[in-house]
Design a binder for these strands. Structure first.
Lengths: 243, 243
DNA sequence: GGCATCTACCGCAAAGCTGCCACATTAAGA
DNA sequence: TCTTAATGTGGCAGCTTTGCGGTAGATGCC
């Protein structure tokens, strides 16, 4: 499995379990990070970017259920509970707090992975369709690759859209020339910074009210471009480095 | 729990289990119907309206896994498997076919209900009619594999329907070439992107008013195709996962 | 066997996108 | 104000992608 299946946080205080689980999860395509206390786990989760949480209920500093409750206040990622205690009230409580699944120790790796896949399934869509970026009169839908100005659809070519997507993902911040070239032409194309200029110009003709006095795509001389993020705080988009 | 928690189909051939489960599920707020064979279960599911399926793997006429696979062709409802066989490969297979959870017999009612709640959670937002898709003059019924234009039935070949289904499931969003090839020819066929073009062309001849200026199946150059979701592109689109 | 239907595949024309150049314009610093 | 570097933009040849007519073989049905 060459592709990345997701970024995953494993919270458990038993070193030997971590030693077994991390390689197995990595082999299954997950990027795994670990925490051994509830406090550090919550700090890592707050920093964002995870697709799933694997959490033990018996942690030294806090009950694992508290992590679930706290996390569910702001996040929707998949949560699978691992536990040595096979008590019904524990299971019911964890599930009703927002866990997606509950696995008793000892468990088989294969089953854990299957349950993880099942919990993750269908979530991509939730994020994808809601990633609808707005700034002023501009609206970008990443899932449908559609761009609207004042509600009217604007047709962009594939490269043009890739550029806008990268700018939108970094809205408010600067997307450097290099970043944009990577986003549009990929890592192994020998793109010239000149092409970015041409592309930006073309996009401006399409989305700016007055292309010679751009208000959306702003030039950062010598560095790159910046998409004005006026007003709307949107889903403070992470994944900036990704595009 | 006074309110209706959902409509639920219980498929099992052990009368005593049904006698125990039905009152418990009803007490928890579910409207429960039962089936004892896979064939009747599928017929009932096709007739629509369920929010969840509880299914035993050991049925007289067909393996429960087949119900899961068939149901997942058109429906997105919660599926929880009950099984007396505690074998890892069974669990993995059932989960990967699309089940949301797997409970071993004997189980506690409390745990089953909690798992059911967890599986149902977060699905509310998914589009209401899971077996009937509409966009403009087009109507697609996933269960009966029928397609209508302005109320009039249009005959599609099996491959053509598979294509339309995948497009409809992603309505508003893009179905990539790869996604479509998978949906129509399956994972181990060596399909060529060229075949997708041909198929799209054929379908357009059948469902578009003016096939040379398509309004339903739109081309996303270099990426794939998109079924226009009429009106708001917002959260209109159903789960992408299945097709 | 005969007929209808479906599927895989070829090949070519049209559409539309990309790379790239030449040159105009603008911003920054001395 | 002048110089220099960086940026903006029209244009177009060539290429990639797409649309689609057509055909042979496979499949299923009377």
């Amino acid at each position: 499995m060459p592709q990345i299946a997701g970024r995953l946080l494993l919270v458990d205080d038993e070193p030997q379990l971590i030693r077994v689980l991390v390689p197995a999860l990595s082999a299954a395509g997950f990027v795994v990070e670990t925490a051994t206390t509830a406090a550090s786990a919550l700090a890592m989760l707050a920093a964002d970017g995870y697709n799933a949480l694997l959490v033990d209920l018996g942690l030294p500093d806090m009950d694992g259920k508290e992590i679930i409750a706290k996390l569910r206040e702001w996040s929707d990622i998949a949560i699978v509970v691992l536990s040595a205690r096979d008590r019904e009230d524990e299971k019911v409580a964890a599930l009703d707090l927002g866990a997606d699944d509950f696995v008793n120790k000892p468990f088989s790796i294969g089953e854990l992975l299957a349950r993880l896949r099942a919990s993750l399934r269908g979530r991509e869509f939730r994020f994808a369709s809601q990633q609808d970026f707005r700034a002023g009169d501009l609206r970008v839908n990443f899932a449908s690759r559609q761009v609207f100005i004042m509600g009217e659809e604007i047709h962009l070519t594939p490269h043009e859209f890739d550029l806008v997507r990268c700018l939108a993902r970094n809205a408010g911040a600067i997307a450097t020339h290099k970043q944009l070239m990577l986003a549009v032409w990929g890592p192994d194309a020998n793109a010239d910074a000149q092409f970015v200029r041409v592309l930006v110009s073309q996009v401006r003709q399409k989305i700016e009210e007055n292309p010679s006095a751009p208000r959306l795509i702003l030039t950062e001389l010598g560095v790159g471009y910046r998409l004005a993020s006026d007003g709307v705080a949107e889903v403070a988009s992470p994944a900036a480095e990704a595009c």
